[in-house]
């Protein structure tokens, strides 16, 4: 009678989806040390789970001091952009099995913004650039009593750039932004693009003028890091080049 029971237990162990994955996290606490250190956390996790689940497991079960941002955990709020295995991604959209769980998974804060603690960065410069391009509808004249109508084609023109969730994955993957942080960055330009090419908006000229500045679109080096990093699949580099084209064609 004992043998079948053993077999069943062994079969269960073999069927267990859990594997041991090492999370190598870049920890930083300014109250203790001005240096950031890598810390390894080996955890048991189903490879079909996401990196965010691993971080939760560490924070809830192993080390409650691990600090990171996340809100919706479903790739919509854009809170948990981080550098996973050297690439900017959303922790909530990255499955463990897709990023080679045999090796340690490195998780660090996004680059180019000040790290406040562990994986939390100061997003203020990023949002300042966003505010600078006036990301809101500007119109003249009387407000219509009904909605502002737009043809399907006119809506299609800027459809791609409406998908931005402001996670900062693109801006913090941009080598020009890393240098001095004065460049507007892909995210701000994407959100300017969304209104510049909106047929209902009337401040496109003003936004183009802002992006014509020395830290505007002309600093883009078309390295395509932003397009690679975007978790929403926005063709960021293409949007930046469309703004450049609009700047040139409006003058000549």
């Amino acid at each position: 009678m004992a043998t079948p029971v053993m077999d069943k237990a062994e079969a269960e162990a073999a069927a267990s989806p859990y594997i041991t994955v090492t999370f190598r996290i870049r920890r930083f606490n300014p109250e203790l040390s001005e240096h950031a250190v890598w810390e390894d956390f080996p955890i048991e996790i189903d490879p079909k789970e996401r990196v965010l689940d691993g971080l939760h497991k560490i924070k809830w079960d192993l080390d409650g001091t691990l600090t990171f941002r996340r809100s919706c955990a479903h790739g919509i709020c854009g809170s948990d952009a981080m550098r996973i295995n050297g690439k900017n991604r959303l922790a909530c959209k990255t499955l463990i099995k897709d990023i080679n769980p045999e090796k340690p998974i490195t998780v660090e804060a996004i680059k180019g913004l000040t790290v406040l603690k562990d994986l939390v960065v100061d997003m203020e410069p990023f949002f300042q650039a966003y505010r600078d391009v006036m990301p809101f509808l500007v119109t003249k004249g009387n407000e219509p009593t009904r909605e502002r109508l737009q043809s399907a084609e006119a809506r299609e023109r800027f459809d791609d750039t409406t998908k931005c969730i402001l996670c900062a994955a693109c801006t913090t993957s941009c080598p020009v932004f890393w240098n001095d942080g004065q460049y507007f960055g892909p995210a701000a330009i994407v959100n300017a693009h969304r209104f510049i090419f909106d047929s209902r908006d009337e401040a496109g000229e003003q936004r183009l003028e802002i992006l014509n500045d020395k830290d505007g679109v002309w600093r883009c080096r078309t390295t395509f890091n932003c397009t690679d990093a975007c978790p929403r699949g926005i063709e960021v580099t293409k949007a930046i080049q469309e703004v450049k084209r609009a700047l040139i064609t409006r003058r000549f």
Partner: peptide, 21 residues
């Protein structure tokens, strides 16, 4: 913790016209 680099608080003025373009 001070930010190593900051963007200006308000929309920056266009400095050099169309020079960059």
């Amino acid at each position: 913790i001070e930010a190593p680099r900051k963007r200006t608080g308000k929309t920056p003025r266009a400095t050099r016209g169309n020079f960059e373009m």
